[in-house]
Amino acid sequence: MNSKSVPVIAERLTKTFRVAHRSAGFMGGVRAIFRPTWEYKPVVRGVSLSVQPGELVALLGPNGAGKSTTIKMLTGIVAPTTGSVRLCGLDPHRNREENARNIGAVFGQRSQLWWDLPARDSLVMLRDIFEVPAGEYRERLRQFDDMLELSRFWDTRVRHLSLGQRVRCDLAAALLHDPAVLFLDEPTIGMDVLVKEQVREFLRHQVAEDGKAVLLTTHDMKEVEHLAERIILINDGEEMFEGGVAALRSRFGATWKVHVTLSDAVGHPRLAHARIVAREGARVTFGPRPEASAPLGHALKEIINAYPVSDVSTEEDSLEDIMRTYLGGAAAARQSASGGSRMAAR
């Protein structure tokens, strides 16, 4: 496939920030002015990714993992230290103006709307800046209004809008020029459940109906489960995983439980995929075998075939549980590693 037909391609992106090192206290501040010492801080270390048309990819990772920095490189705001980005066939940093017509972006905590103007006037400003023809503009605005209920508040000045209202206007603002690629950095931050659902529906529409390529970062795992076909997990600037939700489960040892009530007392045949983890009279709980974590579906079938079951319920780790386990493990590993290096330095 050539690079033009894949809207987003990034290869081995790295970003190292140069930060002035400043020792504590007043003298530290004075010294930093006259003789700054620079520290190089690698923030993104080799991230490769691609997003296809009509695909929503979630970029996940803990705070400070480098997600926002990656998005800034992909959108062309910041130049990568090494590696390459192609957006609709262009180098976004070199061709900022041309690139701007192909992409839209929402950085959740930041608004691109004009603070003193009613939201709708901000949209008109963007229409002029992006040179959107009047007819298309009206049509799109109507569509956004249908899905996001903007007309209820778009005559309010932006500084009086609630967070959820403002971000919805920002979404409309980012899509006004019908870009092929949409970057969303924590777009649903601070939205209530109903509005979140509304925005999800809107995004699903943008991806499925309009074929937009969307890259999303969020800390809301429900959203990922609902929206993302593919997940890219980064930690400490390094890519840890890339694949579907199911693959993520098996990769990070997601676990499940099957609770059954037996209708007859029977012996306990050995199962290939499941083992008993608890039993209480006729109620038995199964979990995966430690040596091979099988998918829930296989185990369930096996259990039902082997036992006389009168009632069944299942329980599966949510994406949030998986992330928690994974991040907990990663943090512990980092702590022991840095502890070790400190010992070595002494």
Partner: peptide, 28 residues
């Protein structure tokens, strides 16, 4: 000190949107 000043755009990072428009920041 108003939210639309350059100073505030820099401080709050909203300046990044200036780089995502087909109108170069210096012209805007």
């Amino acid at each position: 000190m108003a939210p639309d000043s350059f100073y505030r755009h820099m401080r709050e990072g909203t300046i990044l949107y200036w780089f995502l428009r087909p109108l170069p920041p210096h012209r805007y």
